[in-house]
Amino acid sequence: MKNYLLTLIAMCALSFLTHAQDAGQGTVEINKISQPCVKATYSISADMVEGALKKKFSDAKLGSSSKATDGFRV
């Protein structure tokens, strides 16, 4: 019963988190020029999202530059 409740709570929480975004096309200014981009909103704090993205790129052994271009990381 306890395990069932825990799973149910976990699934509810998870469903809230995993349905909190919907990626789509948009535009964003970079170096004062509007460029097409893809954007997605998550119901997770920015530091966690950024940390997760860095980890994903790092786990995939993708090279990253420490430089930032107009607030964008490469």
Partner: peptide, 19 residues
């Protein structure tokens, strides 16, 4: 390819812009 991204803090949520 080069991936450019920016994470905007929109407390309590956040938005990723990816180019």
């Amino acid at each position: 390819i080069d991936v450019y991204y920016k994470v905007e803090d929109k407390k309590p949520s956040s938005t990723i812009y990816m180019l």
